[in-house]
């Protein structure tokens, strides 16, 4: 018989290199923020957020992938204390303790492509290719508009998302910082499900703005300021993800999409669609509408990049 009170040691598979470095010296008590089948979010002693993802999850900023199939039957609940110490992360489940070692994890660095190698017309080709795939394979209910036969509540949210997107595009195009700020506020925290679609949309543009050669610097500053001034505008997870994106760090799936886009110069739109198809499909599979909403942000961001480049 296995004692139920035994502490189970969980091996790490891979982790965000920045997070791993931080955890090595982090000491103190945090708590469990939320529990899902595939990920547990932890509040760090410093108030930040990190994720413990299960085997097979893609790498992402502030995420440690742990060698466990899922979190369902571990009895881990939101609110429980988490100890960060020299032996790793200790958390208490209903059926005994769990300790996650941070040693031996493969370090992950998001490696982003440069954008300045793409000419404006190549940016346009890649944006159109991406748009094609998202509109064909994406999931409605967020940035793609309401699903057919949707209830009035969904329709209302999707309409609001559309207005927010249009306002943002207009403001960025005309370098109107006040308009940008209003549009960001209109999109933050808006949308059905666990990750508001507006946040996913903004995250992709934030990530684009961090690339070398991006023309979206003004937008990045506005978003940064809004997050500082109104941190409670959306969920902690969204806020954290947006901040990471502004510093050029995002889920591996989307990084793969960006890298495939950077490989499209010289291709026709049809060729570009084939080049980016596989990573785009993987990225679309994220969450319910999350992948679609993020890629919609990327489409909008790429179009903006091209237009801003043109105005130089």
């Amino acid at each position: 018989m296995v004692s139920v009170s035994a502490t189970t040691l969980l091996r790490p598979c891979s982790g965000d290199a920045v997070l791993l470095a931080h955890l090595r010296t982090l000491r103190g008590c945090g708590s469990v923020e939320s529990v899902f089948r595939g990920v547990i979010n932890l509040l760090l002693p410093d108030g930040g957020l990190m994720a413990l993802a299960v085997r097979g999850s893609g790498d992402a900023p502030r995420t440690l992938v742990v060698d466990i199939a899922h979190w369902l039957d571990r009895g881990v609940e939101a609110g429980r204390a988490v100890e960060f110490g020299p032996d790793g992360i200790a958390l208490q489940g209903a059926f005994g303790g769990l300790r996650v070692s941070v040693r031996g994890a493969i370090k992950w660095h998001p490696i982003l492509p440069r954008l300045d190698s793409l000419t404006p017309s190549e940016l346009a080709v890649s944006a159109r290719a991406l748009h094609h795939l998202v509109s064909v394979d994406g999931e409605p209910g967020g940035m793609l508009g309401a699903s057919p036969g949707a209830a009035p509540m969904e329709v209302a949210v999707c309409t609001a998302l559309e207005h927010g997107r249009d306002a943002l595009v207009r403001a960025v195009r005309s370098s109107d910082t006040v308009g940008m700020r209003d549009a960001v506020l209109a999109l933050l925290g808006l949308g059905p499900g666990l990750t508001p679609a507006g946040d996913d949309f903004l995250t992709a543009i934030a990530l684009l703005s961090s690339l070398d050669g991006s023309g979206l610097g003004l937008f990045a500053r506005v978003l940064h300021d809004v997050l500082d001034e109104q941190p409670g505008r959306t969920t902690l997870l969204s806020t954290t993800t947006l901040r990471e994106a502004l510093s050029g760090r995002f889920r591996a799936e989307l990084v793969d999409v960006l890298c495939s886009l950077a490989a499209t110069p010289g291709q026709s739109e049809v060729q570009a669609i084939e080049t980016v198809r596989a990573p785009v499909r993987r990225a679309l599979a994220h969450g319910h509408t999350s992948g679609t909403d993020t890629l919609s942000g990327l489409v909008a961001g790429l179009h903006l990049e091209r237009e801003l480049r043109g105005s130089l």
């Binding site: 509540m153 209302a156 949210v157 808006l190 505008r233 969920t235």
Partner: peptide, 26 residues
Amino acid sequence: ANSLDEVKQAFVAMGTEMNKGVLGNL
């Protein structure tokens, strides 16, 4: 939930300002 006979519409979202704003408008 949307397909239940008793339900006219159902909606699941996080309790952010913007989402509450949309619900308020409706």
